[in-house]
Design a protein around this nucleic acid. Sequence first.
DNA 1: CAGTTCATGTGAAGGGTCCTTACATGACTC
DNA 2: GAGTCATGTAAGGACCCTTCACATGAACTG
Lengths: 217, 217
Amino acid sequence: MNWSRNDGPRGYHHGNLKEALIRAALELIAKKGPGGFTFAEAARFAGVSPAAPYRHFRDRDELLADVARRGFEAFAAALERAWDGGRPAPFAAFERLGRAYLAFARSEPAYYSAMFETGLPVEMSPELQAAGDRAFAVIRTAAERLIADMPAGRRPPALMMALHIWSMSHGIASLFARGDAGRRALPMSPEELLEAGVLVYLQGLGVSAASDRDRGK
Amino acid sequence: MNWSRNDGPRGYHHGNLKEALIRAALELIAKKGPGGFTFAEAARFAGVSPAAPYRHFRDRDELLADVARRGFEAFAAALERAWDGGRPAPFAAFERLGRAYLAFARSEPAYYSAMFETGLPVEMSPELQAAGDRAFAVIRTAAERLIADMPAGRRPPALMMALHIWSMSHGIASLFARGDAGRRALPMSPEELLEAGVLVYLQGLGVSAASDRDRGK
DNA sequence: CAGTTCATGTGAAGGGTCCTTACATGACTC
DNA sequence: GAGTCATGTAAGGACCCTTCACATGAACTG
């Protein structure tokens, strides 16, 4: 008689409890933060007994790690879509990348929390680490592409550049673009703030929109 | 070990329970994250009954807010000390400010967590908000000082500048300078990373160390 | 100094949630 | 149709939060 989460009755076996638990975790994290998520409540949410989740995840952390992994994968995909190989012009694509970063943090706060605010060791699972690396690689690749045409002598280290961009993006996302409540008021949107910050930063590196125009775009 | 966190025997009254509870909260937050801190455990830690804390704080959140407030106050004080009115030269002082930011995040992880990772509404108490504002004001004042000598036409908005610096600092602190475990490896220290980032950013704004030299320093 | 007041701490209890171990069920195989 | 194994259940122990009536002793008062 347990009409769990959605459609149709179910028998003794749920059918797809693992997926249901992950969706439950996402809703709970979104609602009450990454700390206020409990194994038992996810089970209740999925309409099964508190012990059922243990058949699918060793413990709470393993579930969270799986959520984080999926988050990083979706994140990497979103960033890749935005960057789109740097087409039609790297500089414009880079701005899209920044907007995509904030858009993800805002539209998927649960994933974002699981990815960055759980305090899980990254080395917890190789898959988690790999997914995180892939997301970061998008930013790094974009940075490399942006500076590719600069004279070698004035070309900044791409890794450092990617770390700076990432840090500023994450900082803005954490401080200003999260949730609906609890954060400081801004004179501009987080997107505008990030775009301006990245622009200034690139200017400081000597990378400029001129490179797009040089390319005939 | 003195489990009651108080030297010498105590009678029926603790004497300074409020302080003891806050110290307990700090140790517990440092050890188990901001979520894994409970009212009852703090009481046990201080050697009193589970009901005693209610004489000093309405609930767990009020205690956390008080910890966060003290954190912001210590933070503001540390930043002010580092900035030191911009003496002897604003540019050098600004670098000290960045290092002080990371030093605080690293040496006081419990405070930093309470300040930024609890999800408490900032408006929870006017004192909390005021303390947070005072910390931010240090960065903003420093930014204003840095650009004070620029020609008015090319002078960037100080508020925006402060927000960018803060975001990058917080991003680096969150991603790389926290705790002992769980973060990504870096090719350089967080301090160096932040210093380089701020330097590039200021370069992009047209602020340069030359202004220190102009001042004869 | 005796008596009173009041902040502070105790103990116990209700209600809740969580986690885990031993057991139950039924889907699948042969 | 019988066995096997993944999957889910039930029940119990532990902890936490909060509130109550009550205990204690420090500070004030006259």
